[in-house]
Structures are given as C-alpha cells and as structure tokens.
Design a protein around this nucleic acid. Structure first.
Lengths: 250, 250
DNA sequence: GCGATCAGCGGCACG
DNA sequence: CGTGCCGTTGATCGC
C-alpha cells in the first residue's frame, strides 16, 4: 500500500478518534522514562480513539512498544517513510514508529459501552471472609474492612476471642516475601497505635517456603485459603490454619 | 463479512502461525485464575503466531481480555456466531470470544527477527555505579554485583572505608515502602551471615515521605540518584547523600 | 518447574 | 497530583 494513502487513512482515523490498524515494516524508537530501540521488522500497530498506541510483534503477549492514552499523535511523510509519532508530557515521552512499508492500513469506528466484570479478585475474597470470619478462626469478630492506615489499608481488621487485635491480609495467589513484610508493616502500625496485643494473619492459597519461614520468625500466622471460582462469583471452600511444622510429622 | 469466510481466514492463520486480526462485535468470557464477563461490543482481536490472544477495545492501553502464548486456539461456527476459543492448561484457563458480526478478518505473515534494546533499566544504572562507587560514598570498595542471597540478590555489595559491609539497592524510580523493606531484608540476612556491622543504602531518584521515615527509623540510608538517558545509554549525573532532617533547617 | 524480582509496569482508589 | 497496591499482572533469570 502506498505510504501517502496509509497516512490519509491514519489521519482520518485520528481526527475521528477511530481505531486505526496499521500492518507493515517499521522500526521503533522510544525515549522517556527509559529509552529503547527496535530495529526494522514487520509488526502491527494499533492506535485507539483515546490515543493509546501499541506496537505488536507476532509473538509475546505484551506490546513491544507503546504509549499510554491522552497524548498527541501525529503523522509525517518522509522520503520513503511514514513516521507516526506519539508524544506526551508528564512524563515527557516520545514514541516513533517509522514505516518503510505498509501492507495494510484501516480504521474502524467501534461502538462499545461495556466494561469488564471480574470475579475472584482479592476484594471479592475479602468480602466472602467478612461474611464468615469464623472460617479463619472461631470466635473472630470483624471490626472493619479496608481500614485506612497512615499508609496503605488493612484488608480486614478484627478482634479474637481473647480481645486481641487481628490484622488479616488476603492474597488471591501464592504469598511471597513481600506479602509477609506488608503484613508486618500493618501489624507494626496497629500495635503502635493501640497498645493491645496485635496478631497478623496472612490468608492465601499458598505460601512459599522462605516466606513461611520469615512469617514464623516474626510470629505471624498463615491460613491456607482454598477457593474456587464458579461463575459468576468466587466461593471459599475452606480456610485452614497452617500448623507450625505439620510436615515434621508426616 | 460472512462468519464462515472469517472462520476460514482465522483457521488458515492459525495453521500457518500467522498474525490474525479480527474486527467485529463480540462478547467475551474468561474462566481461569479468575473469571470475567464482557458483554457485547465492537472490538479488535489479535491472535499471534505463538498463540497469544488479545481483545482490545477502542480505549485503554491494556487489552481488556487476553490469553498468554502456548495454548490452543480453536474456532467454531454456531448458529449466528463465530466462537474463537483459547485454552491452556497449567493454569487451566479458557477464553472465549463470541462474534456475532465480523467487519474484517485478515492475516499476515510477519517477518521480524529484532528484539528490543532498552536503556535506563535498573541493571544499567547498577552497572554505572559499579564503575564509580565513589559517587555513592568516597572510599567505597565494590565486592560483588548481584550477590545471590538465600532468597533474592543484592544489587551491589561493598565495603566502606571503615570496613563495614554495605548493601546497596538501586531503583530506577521513586522508592516507596516496599523498597525499604526489601533493603532491610537484605541487610538483615547479610548481618546474620557475616557478623560485621552492615549498612544499607537505597539509591533512587526519589523516595516518598513515609518511605524515608521508615528508612530512617531502621537506620538505613538514602542517596538521591540523578540520572539522564541520552541514547543509547544512561548516564549518572550525580548521587547525593540525603542529609537526615535537612528540611528541618529550611 | 518454582521462586524472586524488575517493568517505560498499567490501573484504580484515596487523600 | 502523589502514594500505595492489586493485577488473569507479564517477562526474565536463577535454582
């Protein structure tokens, strides 16, 4: 396809805020928060109505180069090239796709009012625990969900049978080291404000060995959260307290 | 475009591992690590040679639904629909795009041997500090880069003039709470193995107020890392030690 | 394969 | 705006 023709199609799409799809051979330069160079190859470029700019190769899930929405996009015809440039300020960034060949350029006005509904998120699981805190521990009284801390927020804040404060951090997938330190931070801050004894419970489907080790060192607790996702919601199958050194008896 | 015709184009692309681009009205269902529903709307679907599957709306940088590479993709013609299904096991996931209309379906064999070269990464900055450790502190001797710890690795491990061990963690952007706890973890582990005094220095362009507070509480140190990216590499302009409570005198 | 970490992370919510 | 944090995070590298 002629580069001039391709430019006309892209320009029209830009002014009408339509989705533009350009397939061709291009190189890509980026300069902003970092800098990158991608030498010539055949790719697909998507330009969306909000200014989102994506360069896709024929492999890999993620776009190889991109520019977030709300910037400015311009086209420029060179000697033997069509240059499409996407810029934004704050942060100052420039993305440039230099096309030497365009196989196809097209645009589409896409009507789409729908937004995604997701189930099985952390918040979703947290809600379910809120409804049945006994699953975590018998006699637990929930005081608050998403309690704002000076920095960050506690998923679930509760009180146990003995009157101790309990901080529960819920994770939808395997917990690692940073999840333990995150919980520790919350426990520290709560312990500083109220000076009652404060327990911390990490609630996740799994925990890595080293994270479990660190957790026990800090006298925090772990609960295995067994859940399933059966449309259109998540459901907790069980929450079991991790017995310290259970494996030693097997 | 006729759905049968669209299916033929997609099938041919799949068997030849070409990039397929389908534009049309579809709804999308996902079930796997989580679950989601996206009701009908007009979108662009990309299917790549490696099986990557992407559903894009006309706004937003990220794909609204997707399936990572290496799965299986099949098409099925229904009464008035074309269903494209992408599945994978481990984790078990199913993504289904149900097309009621297809405006355009096309495929492209894309030749592309290039991979992205990026500058201004953390590793890049770490390398530069390795070459001139004096920028961080006069008299610093680098012992090791990317020292493997039992879990994780230290960006730069050094010794100061007085013979203390120094753990340096480099960040390419504003450091927050989790970067402080990360450094603390490394310092703790080093301190446990060698029982010399161990200092920890966080080196980043900025640090958030609460992170700075926590850092000082833990007797760790912060250095402002001022760098610029001038193709094709990064360059450090300066590294300045954060004076404790400097702001108090202003 | 799991585990830990980086990423131009993106996106959202809240102050 | 910055700050914190979740995400179907993805991608990479080491064990």
């Amino acid at each position: 396809m002629d580069l001039t023709e391709a430019q006309a199609i892209v320009d029209e799409a830009l002014s009408a805020r339509k989705m533009a799809i350009i397939v061709g051979e291009c190189s890509v330069k980026y300069h902003g928060r970092a800098a990158s160079k991608l030498s010539s190859g055949e790719r697909v470029v998507l330009i969306k109505g909000d200014g989102s700019f994506l360069v896709h190769q024929n492999s890999g899930l993620a776009a190889i180069n991109y520019q977030p929405p709300k910037g400015t996009i311009t086209t420029k015809l060179g000697e033997d090239t069509l240059v499409i440039r996407a810029t934004r300020k704050k942060p100052a960034e420039l993305l440039e796709a230099i096309f030497s060949k365009v196989f196809s350029a097209s645009s589409f006005s896409l009507r789409d009012d729908s937004s995604l509904r997701v189930f099985g998120t952390e918040k979703n699981l947290s809600d379910l625990i809120m409804q049945k805190p006994d699953l975590v521990e018998e006699g637990l009284t929930v005081l608050n969900q998403e309690s704002p801390l000076s920095k960050g927020k506690i998923d679930i804040f509760a009180r146990d049978k003995k009157g101790n404060s309990v901080v529960i951090e819920v994770k939808r997938r395997t917990a690692g080291l940073k999840e333990v330190t995150q919980l520790q931070r919350y426990v520290d801050e709560v312990g500083k404000r109220l000076d009652t004894k404060t327990r911390g419970i990490l609630c996740a489907p799994k925990i890595t060995p080293s994270a479990l080790h660190m957790l026990e060192e800090k006298n925090l607790e772990f609960c295995t959260l067994d859940y399933e996702i059966h449309n259109p919601s998540a459901k907790i199958r069980s929450i079991k307290k991790k017995q310290k050194g259970l494996g030693d008896y097997l």
